[in-house]
């Protein structure tokens, strides 16, 4: 995985609460056995009109949103299904970070695993960001992962929480599976002591 440190990107607003992962990527796109084609299915119900042409009114389709890499989204973003296809689709489309007042638990974990930053901000910052984007659709924000800060247009820096270990992994381009595989000795001791004897090979 590529290390992530600081990046600046154009922000686009999707100020709806409770955007579920079925909206991020509908189930019909989940029949793949790899990660291909998912970006095309991103927000498909909103992005395309019934005849298949792009919906000009959808935020991501507006010309000024071209190249956006930061999505400012409503509360409880990513609720519903555990499909990692949702962060895959967002990252495939070009997003590097999602900013929201709060994320659904499974989505947040999945996004962190693939280097799509879930940035949780307070309500005031969320509304301030929405106002900036409304006034200037070319608004850019800077995300400094090392300092755990979002830098808003105008220079105000807002701290955001992120799990220390996930931050360390993202900053250094380390993946979490490698760390888990190093725990083998402890896992063996645990297994030797566990009273549970389940065997799925009946």
């Amino acid at each position: 995985m590529e290390p992530i440190t600081t990046f600046a990107g154009k922000a686009v607003a999707l100020p709806l609460d409770n955007v579920d992962t079925d909206q991020v990527i509908p189930a019909k796109y989940l029949k793949v056995t790899d990660k291909s084609g998912l970006a095309e299915g991103l927000f498909t119900v909103w992005r395309y009109l019934p005849d298949g042409t792009p919906n000009p009114d959808f935020a991501l389709n507006r010309p000024e949103a071209a190249g956006a890499s930061v999505l400012v989204a409503g509360r409880n973003f990513g609720c519903g299904s555990s499909r990692e296809h949702a962060p895959w689709a967002l990252a495939g489309y070009g997003f590097k970070a999602i900013i929201s007042p709060y994320f659904a638990d499974i989505f947040r974990g999945n996004a962190l695993k693939i280097g799509l930053l879930p940035v949780t901000v307070d309500e005031e910052t969320y509304h301030e960001l929405l106002s900036h984007i409304e006034e200037d659709p070319e608004t850019s924000v800077t995300i400094d992962l090392a300092a755990q800060q979002v830098i808003l247009p105008g220079g105000r820096a807002v701290a955001f929480p992120i799990d220390n270990f996930a931050r360390h992994c993202l900053l250094n381009g380390i993946d979490q599976l490698g760390f888990l595989m190093q725990q083998d000795e402890d896992v063996r001791s645990y297994e030797a002591a566990s009273p549970i004897t389940l065997n799925t090979h009946l």
């Binding site: 555990s82 296809h85 499974i106 974990g109 888990l180």
Partner: peptide, 30 residues
């Protein structure tokens, strides 16, 4: 699968995970 929460009815701690974590559990059981 997010509806893994179903199994909690038995007093198990059961929850849905993403595909990266499916890989983690396959490889490490943790």
């Amino acid at each position: 699968d997010s509806h893994t929460s179903t199994h909690g009815a038995f007093g198990a701690l059961a929850f849905g995970i993403g595909t990266s974590e499916v890989g983690h559990v396959l490889a490490s059981q943790c």
